[in-house]
Write a protein that binds this DNA or RNA. Structure first.
Lengths: 237, 237
DNA sequence: TAATCGTGATGACACAGGTTAATTTACGTT
DNA sequence: AACGTAAATTAACCTGTGTCATCACGATTA
């Protein structure tokens, strides 16, 4: 998301607190009332639905993402939020967002746009779960994550660090962890990609995207200006 | 969605055209630029992703829904839109929505809220596809639709008209139409619900919701004020 | 050093749901 | 009334993924 100098300054001033979170930590629970939203600065976080012990991830967040901007209007979330890796987050009070909305209508538009992309990603995930088989689902997810991380300056298009383990992939793709293992082995043997918890290596990005029926259009990424919201927090690369 | 008298009047004035659409008609295609949004007044519509002939529904719309309000900010859609039954729709130019947003900030909030609920429904669908088996998926979908139609005054909680056929259910639930038939038969035999294209009859709403792990919280329906946006177009209830 | 625990790696087996194909029913059109 | 087409219904068979159980490995912790 590209911010003007003034917008960025004003936005940073709205941050009430910067926190470090430990990995695998529950951060928000469905139903609790919220008065602030979380901007992810470093690390990976997830949003998931847990009903009767059945867990389904509904989003994976990368640095630069607003994790729960939708809580601003909903007031109460319909899902839980957790860290996947250690993470650094900035908290922005809803009261500040309200003021920001009045002062900088253009920034508000950009924020709304980001929640709409969040929904577009939901839809791509629906397609993934509804119509792709196990190998295709993983291929789709890795391709999507690769593009999002490229846009955040955290992937060169072939290699990136990702804090996810096999059971995470299972909860993302609606599969069991035993089967995730089979799929990863297959992708390795086909020389499409190698997934290790700490590092993902894509050997053939194009074939992988093909296999996952992946087309990045729904991410609405302007490939000209790929600086993430948080890029000022890290050495821009 | 509850609108004040002034809001409703102003909103109706923003409508540029009311159209009747025939059933099973494609209305919008992914990627085409849009300058207006569609409010569904009567009938049922769907949004779906079609990639390489694989079709997955990502939303079903009931009267009172804004079908593509998100197009207002995205400008281009990531999915197609079609009618399921014959339908009446109102077109609202984005330019009018822009003006509306400035004149009536409260209405804008309400509209944003409705796009957030749209996303919350996406998430419930993700859970459905990722974690429920065939019978549970159908039970979940029918329970959800029942609640939404109740809120629109189009279901009494046990019976409602729905223009969906078995292949639609397949594209909603990520199954094949052959298997949909098996599931519907099972639900019939278990005396939970009877699905006919023209009429859905829920014999045991509570058991059906249980079976589908359905909890309506994510619909954010205020059971006190259940008038739909379009309710002024029809005799209420 | 041992003990514990989370993660990854495997195999054997079971079954939910897909595939294919055929038949029947419903419905709109001429 | 006759026709064509799409939907519903059904059966036989197959396969992708789940289930269950075990083992190996490395990282913590006692």
């Amino acid at each position: 998301m590209h911010l003007e100098v003034e917008e960025r300054a004003r936005f940073e001033a709205a941050i009430s607190e910067v926190k470090t979170l430990s990995p695998r930590q529950n951060v928000l629970t469905a139903g609790e009332p919220l008065d602030h939203s979380i901007l992810l600065i470093e690390g990976f976080m997830s949003r998931y639905i847990d009903r009767n012990g059945l867990r389904q991830l509904v989003a994976v967040h990368v640095p630069g993402d607003f994790v729960d901007l939708h809580a601003f209007s909903l007031e109460v979330l319909d899902h839980d939020v957790a860290t996947m890796t250690a993470a650094t987050v900035a908290l922005v009070p809803h009261s500040e967002l309200e003021i920001l909305a009045q002062e900088l209508p253009k920034l508000t538009l950009k924020l709304r746009f980001s929640t709409l992309i969040d929904a577009a990603i939901h839809r791509a995930w629906l397609f993934r779960l509804g119509r792709l088989n196990a190998v295709e689902r993983i291929a789709h997810f890795i391709s999507e994550t690769n593009v999002r991380l490229m846009s955040a300056g955290l992937s060169d298009g072939r290699r990136f660090a990702l804090g996810l383990i096999q059971p995470d992939l299972a909860e993302i793709c609606g599969l069991t962890n035993v089967h995730i293992y089979r799929v990863l082995r297959q992708l390795r043997e086909q020389k499409l990609c190698v997934f290790r918890s700490s590092l993902v290596e894509i050997l053939d990005p194009e074939k992988l995207a093909d296999q996952g029926h992946f087309d990045p259009a729904y991410l609405y990424i302007d490939l000209q200006s790929t600086d993430a919201l948080s890029s000022h927090q890290r050495p821009t690369k």
